[in-house]
Design a protein around this nucleic acid. Structure first.
Length: 417
RNA sequence: GUGGUCGUAGCUCAAUGGUAGAGCCCCAGAUUGUGGUUCUGGUUGUUGCGGGUUCGAGUCCCGUCGGCCACCCCA
């Protein structure tokens, strides 16, 4: 029995898990760069106040927070957006607008874990700052779709549900509802799918009838139409559904909001985001003001969906397998040749080949087995043939003798990496 | 935070209240320096932990920790 284990909700990444994670990160990075986004990072630990301040009280109860040795109230970041807002406010004039920034990092929350929901996870965040035009919303949703597509998913596998908070705030204004109640009503609409209809009606009171009528009709707006038109021009309209039931829990969203789900409805949201035009101004106490929008995509649900989707799973399997293989394994058949082998190993590694060899004397049969296990395509045997080396192509079992000093040239000609 | 359910070897799982097992993995062999198959042998457990009932507990009871599921909440 091992005494120490990881804390609940925290993961160990064994090599295969790490390879899968790196694969996800690589796709995220690759597609974000295709869209002209640049990478940045913020601190993992932030003052608790940053999250208490304006992002809605609902998040505070789930913070992984504590008091540090300097008596500061701090929290492991649960999300990136407040940090981004702070950074943008502090460096507002240093960059031309719009900013297109992305970040990959670890985020934390303190709550009971269950499937798809740990106390720690990795997230991609993509944000556009300094652009009010709907074109920015189209760009962001397009990027989100293309990132999911990059893993081999199609419109049969996932859907982006798009909504607009302004659709609801316009409605509430038309109903002459006091703005203090808006957040509470939006929360109720957000919960609509998860709560019994009677409870919703009770909470909405006189609004229940018009709200339910809108939902049964589907809800439409000129802005949402234009958004979908823009995505259609990109050829991405098949990936989206307008669905005004999407509101999102965070209070800081102000306009378009969206969430990505698997079509089968088996998992939690894969990604989510929206427009938060007032947050930067709020967090900076008015010293900076920038419209902004962004989304986040986590590694946990995405990873589960990749694992359960044949095409995506195979693509990842293939990519990670290649990544973990070595190119060349050195078989030391005679210990007298170890020094010669080491000299060549150094040369090969300098040239960029992935090379491994037995650290202790061992049977030749076992060494070939190890070469196979490590995924080498070629084995070099150092033994009685010296100063020649036996070059064996493992897949075909073909062997040729090559003089050791001609080995580099020989491999360059015969081993394509 | 609340409720339900589960916890046996590194992994997947067996064991009517009566001496804890199998498969896989791993390790070592099968006449001198050649790998994916095969054969032989071998290692591994305070049955999550702590109490209790019993002649006797992996099995029943209580507590605790951990996993899973639902609720809460959702970045």
């Amino acid at each position: 029995m091992i005494a120490m284990q990881a804390l609940p909700g925290f993961r160990d990444f064994l090599p295969s898990d790490c390879a899968a994670r790196n694969y996800i990160f690589a796709k995220w990075r690759e597609v974000a760069r295709r869209y002209g986004f640049v990478e940045w990072e913020g601190p993992v630990l932030e003052p608790t106040e940053l999250y208490k301040k304006k992002s809605g009280d609902e998040i505070v109860g789930q913070l992984f927070n504590f008091t540090d040795k300097g008596q500061r109230e701090v929290a492991l970041r649960p999300e990136l957006t407040p940090s981004l807002a702070r950074v943008v406010a502090a460096h507002e004039r240093e960059f031309k607008k719009p900013l297109k920034w992305f970040s990959i990092g670890q985020f934390f929350r303190y709550e009971k874990q269950q499937r798809g929901r740990l106390r720690e996870h990795f997230q991609l965040n993509c944000d556009i700052v300094g652009e009010t035009a709907l074109a920015a919303d189209i760009e962001l949703v397009s990027l989100c779709i293309d990132i999911v597509r990059a893993f081999g998913f199609t419109e049969r596998d996932f859907v982006v549900r798009i909504s607009d908070r302004e659709f609801w705030t316009d409605f509430l204004r038309s109903q002459e509802i006091a703005s203090e109640r808006w957040d509470e009503i939006l929360q109720t609409i957000d919960k609509l799918g998860r709560e019994p209809r009677e409870k919703t009606s009770e909470k909405l009171g006189q609004l229940a009838e018009p709200v339910l009528r809108i939902l049964s009709k589907g809800g439409k707006s000129e802005k949402l139409d234009r958004l979908v038109d823009g995505l259609r021009a990109c050829g991405l309209a098949n990936f989206v559904d307008v669905d005004v039931r999407i509101v999102r829990g965070l209070a800081y969203y102000t306009g378009i909001v969206f969430e990505v789900f698997d079509r089968a409805g088996k998992f939690r949201a894969i990604a989510g985001g929206g427009r938060y035009d007032n947050l930067i101004e709020q967090l900076s106490d008015g010293s900076a003001s920038q419209p902004a929008l962004g989304f986040a995509m986590g590694d946990v649900v995405l990873g589960e969906l990749i694992g359960e989707t044949a095409t995506a799973g195979e693509a990842m399997e293939k990519a990670t397998a290649v990544e973990q293989k070595i190119n060349i394994y050195i078989v030391i058949a005679k210990e007298e040749r170890r020094a010669d082998a080491l000299g060549q190993i150094q040369q090969l590694r300098d040239r960029g080949y992935r090379v491994d060899y037995p650290l202790t004397p061992g049977k030749v049969a076992r060494q070939f087995q190890t070469a196979e296990d490590l995924g080498a395509s070629i084995a070099l045997l150092y033994g009685d043939e010296w100063p020649q080396v036996k070059v064996k192509t493992l897949a075909t079992r073909e062997e040729t003798l090559v003089a050791n000093e001609e080995l580099l040239a020989h491999l360059q000609a015969h081993l394509s990496l």
